[in-house]
Amino acid sequence: MKKQIPILITATVGTVLVLSVFFPPAKMLGEDFSLFFDIIAVFAFFLGGGNLVRVHFIKVYRRKSDWVYSVVTLVGFTMMLASGLFKLGGPPGISGSVTADGSYLNTMFIHIIAPLSSTMYALLAFFVASASYRAFRAKNREATILLIAAFVILLGRTPLGMMATGWVWESLSIFQIPNLAVWVMNVPNLAGQRSILIGVGLGVVAMSLRLILGMDRTYLGGDND
């Protein structure tokens, strides 16, 4: 029973939403779902946030290794909650924006979250280089094809591509690297993308069907609790 009702919920909701596509008056069900999801997600965050606090609190309490950093996490989390819930530094009143200029929340976003985010993102420059090096060392046909395509596109997007192949005769201009890069993007790249997308489309349908039919239901946990 504890498992049967959820299976029924999944099957009913899933079937209704599949059919809603073919029935225009039911179109708004999809939009309603996103609203439902947003509201459920807030409650779920109480569990997530609770887990965060619990994990770090236990670490501090038991003086596990690196517990000091857990203190930093807990202080940061609490600071943000206080700033946001009480709208510190921002316009007063319940309707004032919590992220208004001057609010503590916004200030911390600008000076802490934004630089940290962009720097993590920027690390990709180094990781792209190391991944390229690894791909370069791989000595099989697939890796070589990948590298050649990457090289053509990379050169094609820089002036170097034109400088290196600008001398090629007009009748063979397709072999000028910038033109070749455009062709690679528009033809073999497109073909590969399409086969991936078609496969994904079919895969999603089959997986969704398995979920709606209740064939795959490990996410609902065991019967005994």
């Binding site: 504890k2 498992k3 009702i5 959820p6 299976i7 919920i9 999944t10 099957a11 009913t12 909701v13 899933g14 079937t15 209704v16 939403l17 599949v18 809603s20 596509v21 999809g30 779902f33 439902f36 999801f37 459920i40 409650f43 997308l197 078609i198 994904v200 489309g201 079919l202 999603v204 349908v205 997986m207 969704s208 069907l209 979920l211 709606i212 996410y219 609902l220 946990g221």
Partner: peptide
Amino acid sequence: RWPLAFIVGATAGLYMMTYFVSN
């Protein structure tokens, strides 16, 4: 599990059609 079942069913139902058509 009820809200979880709701979300899984809705995601499966919604994206089943979206992916089938668009992909």
